[in-house]
Nucleic acid binder design. Structure first.
Lengths: 153, 153
DNA sequence: GTTAATGCAAATGTTTTGCAGTATA
DNA sequence: TATACTGCAAAACATTTGCATTAAC
């Protein structure tokens, strides 16, 4: 393999150690998820996978997304109205900022959310396992474009 | 800043002023949404509506949820894996805490999120219109129950 | 060689849509 | 009375499942 920078052993090892078979489909899907910028939905993942393995089926994609999620290899997000988005388990905690104009997703660090979590957990007697912060709005490009449209109209 | 008390327009007024007809179905649905504790999905709303109007259809429920959302009468949340939940527009900003054991939803105030919004907006040059904070975990009841099960098992 | 994973097709569950009939303004 | 809204049935989606075949171990 030409430029194997990181040995992606962790995914493979996790599959191995949980007695899941390392199939070509799973290898491909994990690779695409890693390189996919982290924010792919099932259908987009399927589309990309078919470019490498034209006979892969959509059910395989769904079945393996479930598996990867169960093994903790990926996380599932509910950004948009309809789809789920998947990203490989982030090594650093981050939150998401979504542009309603172009769909761009920006990740930002939010260390405060951890303090927050503790406070709220104590207050309501919850054992909190997850904090998700999502902000939506318009990026500068889309604001500019909107302005142009208004001028034109 | 003293809390601003906006003269709350009635749902009926909003329907009227946007030239939407005030039908018995819409009146019922809005009433149920108000009284529903704020966290109903389409199907649960449909089930409750049928107790009052057995002939109401699910499409009417969906169509009107869309309409109410467009008019800003309700907000849509994506708590669970599959369903959307709707709540009547909250007068006070709040966020959500979800118990994975029993599905209970607790609302909590999070004034910090507004400061946050400004900081992030500046940093990434976004005009942020919405901030959503969602925490998930186990409430005290469910933690206790889990403990009991472990003892028993 | 066993058995889990796959591809396909059919099933499921949620949400949307076309259309004729009904109720609102 | 005109027409927006409804109910119904069917369509359109995303996702899941059953089963015979294929491939990983």
């Amino acid at each position: 393999m030409p430029r194997e920078i990181k040995p992606q052993k962790s995914s493979r090892q996790i599959l191995d150690s949980s007695r899941q078979r390392v199939t070509t489909q799973r290898t491909l899907l994990l690779d695409l998820l890693h390189r996919g910028g982290g924010h792919l939905d099932a259908d987009e993942l399927y589309r990309r996978a078919r470019q490498k393995q034209p006979r892969i089926s959509l059910s395989t994609v769904y079945r393996n997304l479930q598996l990867f999620k169960k093994l903790g290899l990926i996380e599932e997000h509910h950004f948009a109205e309809e789809h789920h988005y998947y990203e490989t388990k982030p090594t650093t905690e981050h939150q998401h900022l979504l542009c309603l104009g172009c769909g761009k997703i920006v990740e930002f660090a939010c260390p405060l959310s951890q303090q927050f979590k503790e406070g709220i957990g104590r207050e309501y007697d919850f054992e909190i396992t997850e904090v998700e912060v999502r902000m939506t709005g318009l990026c500068s490009n889309c604001r500019q474009r909107k302005g142009e449209n208004l001028e034109a109209g």
